[in-house]
Amino acid sequence: MNSIEVKNLSKVFGNFISVNNISFEVKEGEVFGFLGSNGAGKSTTIKMLCGILEPTSGDALVGGYSIATQPDEVKKNIGYMSQKFSLYNDLTVNENINFFGGVYGLENKLLKDRKKWVLEISGLEGREDTLTSSLSVGFKQRLALGCAVIHEPKIIFLDEPTGGVDPISRRKFWDLITDLSDKGTTVFVTTHYLDEAEFCGRIILIDAGILIAAGSPKELKKEYIKNKVIQLDCSDIYKAAEILEKENITDSISIFGNSLHLTMKEQIRSLNELEDDEIKIITDLLSNDNDLKIYHISEISPSLEDVFLYLVEKKTADEE
């Protein structure tokens, strides 16, 4: 069953088309990633889906309700959290939970139970009377998520939820998201961090308001990145890079920590049917230098970042 169905949704501000006729579906219980660069129309789309912004044309069903005609019903069934972690800084943890719980109509036992849950997931048990302003960003983020889903909505929208959060807190946060999704909550998330997108079941990419790709991370990589990516560990990566750059076999060479990522040119692959050939070519090239020792060389799968950059560049090239 689909929990979100977007049909030909558009939003125009003056003569600027922010969202241009996009359509997609999100299944129940799915973690759905919504990717795009700044100003691509991500926030505008999420705001329309939450009933904050009225669409210029098109419609979407969120939890079975139309965002154009039943925004109030939509609001009862969703949770929303933005990168601002919109909590009241001058209220305590407890007061924030009481307020948001109250706004969603929770009281007595139900409020108590949910409060316990929020404190648990945010790791703030025993710190109920702390002012929210004195919490660290990671705690704030989890408390904001807890407040946003205090009414146990079927669908939650997260607009760049991990901005400015340290890696460990980000990881904890994504564990929470995965838990929610396992319990059947649909999670719709926008993010800049392409490594985070790997956690998503399915993703869509938009650029300048237009949907440019959709699928699971695996599918996207398979579909769009035909070039091989090879990881090379050796005694002197700078020297190796220098040698390989002279040969016309790579599209790009980038340094990742102590190793090199080599994106090979496509034609090499089409000329040589055997997979191991590229590795052999590189090994041969580098063995000419006696000082250089290869520790490890293997093919790796491309990242979503490669996919994203490829698609955006391709779109720009097509337009020209």
Binding site: I52, D72, G79, M81, K84
Partner: peptide, 13 residues
Amino acid sequence: EIGTLEQLIVTPI
């Protein structure tokens, strides 16, 4: 400014 207004707008208030 702090974004709580936006947060309130997505609630049934």
